[in-house]
């Protein structure tokens, strides 16, 4: 595995290459996409990006957890967690790209 890590910068660079916008505006658009997605999720709305995947928010009830190190019981309050389900297209491409 290559083990490289891409960041926002690489995404804005991809936008910059794709459309004739300034690097600055490309970066702002990437940021805005992430914000719009985050805001929808915070509003409990699913975010479904065709051929990419679906982000959804699940509510978890309170439970008693345990500190794995000390074995001590600790209450875990109810919370909302984010899950991502990749599309078939993404799963297939990632699987075949990483095949050895």
């Amino acid at each position: 595995m290559a083990g490289k890590t891409l960041t926002r910068m690489d995404l804005s660079e991809a936008v910059f290459r794709e459309v004739g916008l300034s690097r600055n505006e490309s970066a702002q658009l990437v940021e805005r996409v992430l914000e719009l997605m985050s805001d929808s999720l915070v509003d409990d709305e699913q975010v479904k990006i065709s051929s990419f995947g679906t982000f959804s928010v699940r509510s978890k009830t309170a439970r008693v957890g345990r500190n794995p190190k000390t074995g001590e019981e600790a209450p875990i309050p109810p919370r909302r967690v984010l899950t991502f389900r990749p599309s078939h297209l993404m799963k297939d491409r990632v699987a075949s790209g990483n095949k050895r």
Partner: peptide, 24 residues
């Protein structure tokens, strides 16, 4: 623009790379 963003993420993962978007 939107396609380029998601395509870049899939492309990175296809090569075994990570994509880290702080805060997101």
């Amino acid at each position: 623009i939107v396609s380029a963003i998601f395509e870049e993420i899939i492309g990175a993962l296809t090569q075994g790379d990570r994509v880290e978007l702080r805060g997101f």
